[in-house]
Design a protein around this nucleic acid. Structure first.
Lengths: 209, 209
DNA sequence: CCTTCAGGTTAACGACCGCTAACCTCCCTG
DNA sequence: CAGGGAGGTTAGCGGTCGTTAACCTGAAGG
């Protein structure tokens, strides 16, 4: 995957602006004329590049899910058995944080507009998301073997909620630098996992086997 | 606040169903006819109870924010100076978890449809939310005095993201019991705060006895 | 030089949606 | 028992939105 230096194609411009607008005002809250205006063309000109408004959302959501999953698989392959599970988990967390900080509109869309997709697209996205989650669950259970699988899955979803909170942060003041924010989020994610996994207070996980 | 035993009024029925539908398909994705149908009347009959579709959303969001803030203030008053800061923080977490588990549609709406409000309503909701956050920040900084204020605010937002992830949990299987889920979320929230507040990687739990 | 075609344009259609108007029907109350 | 308000109903208006149709244009290619 060579780093892109060439200018973005028109399709990419449209997708980027559509993502921003969808994240700001919701899928149904944005008209095609607005999306067109955001890239300098107007309204129906978009139909030279996309089959319809739905197709834009579909491509965005499939792209996000696929990108997250691909990145996670790559990180897992790089560590291939050699590295300690903690290191792999840290790598997953780092990748997710990068994504959450660099592509906030996409992160917002990702868990907000999924239900607006056609059935087939929605199934595809759900499948990619599920694979991503299961990948985290496996790594997490290597780090905390006492953790039961349902609890691990809940913990992963919860940490996603924590990491995906970045869109809510920016509203008030520029907040700490990107690096400091990333580090804080990373520490909190590890802390949350540790609290979930170090069979802590007692017994509630054991009870439900 | 006496526990309600009498039947819900029509207004309350409408609000409840509207919240569910808005959470499922988004504010713009739901028509007034659907909301009416959900409570057994049809379409324009709603206008006997609400000034418009916007008014329903506004009442929902203001209600949520107010309820969260009121509950937190009550919990803070109950502990009035006497209790240890850790206990107060636990109480806040418990209250938020109860809300997140019992009113999932509302939690979903709360950070999804805020921008669909009229300016005045949005300002009111934002103000209530801000007060709620600041209240958490104060308590958190009593527990972790080393924590700088911007970092504390970020940490609070992130933990809200963690706790508000409950809507994502239910999709696949009924998952652990409500009690077990609440306990897991509580531990993770404390763990995340501890990791944010104990400056440095380690030693954070041991120090705070 | 003619053709083709990618990538635009504006006009307009059909569907949907929020809301109002006009009307009906109980039930309560003086 | 009149009557009036609370809480419905259906019909329909006005606006918006996604999409299509028909047309235009500039650059590339034989």
């Amino acid at each position: 995957m060579a780093t892109r230096t060439d200018a973005p194609t028109r399709r990419e411009q449209i997708l980027k602006e559509a993502a921003r607008l969808f994240a700001e005002r919701g899928f149904h809250g944005v008209g095609v004329d607005e999306i067109g205006a955001a890239v300098g063309i107007s309204g129906p000109g978009l139909y030279r590049h996309f089959a319809g408004k739905d197709a834009m959302l579909a491509e965005l959501l499939v792209g996000i899910s696929g990108q997250l999953l691909t990145g996670a698989k790559r990180r897992l392959a790089e560590a291939d058995g050699a590295a300690a599970p903690e290191t792999v988990l840290d790598s997953l967390i780092e990748g997710h944080i990068d994504f959450a900080l660099d592509d906030r509109p996409l992160i917002t869309l990702h868990d907000r507009e999924l239900d607006r997709l056609r059935d087939s697209d929605r199934k595809l996205v759900r499948q990619l998301q599920r694979q991503y989650v299961e990948l985290w669950v496996e790594v997490l259970r290597e780090v905390y073997p006492e953790l039961a699988e349902p609890a691990a899955r809940s913990a992963v979803h919860s940490v996603f909620g924590l990491l995906n909170s970045t869109p809510h942060l920016s509203r008030r003041g520029p907040l700490p630098s990107r690096g400091a924010t990333a580090e804080l989020l990373h520490r909190m994610a590890r802390g949350a996992f540790a609290a979930a996994g170090g069979q802590g207070t007692p017994a509630q996980v054991a009870r439900e086997a």
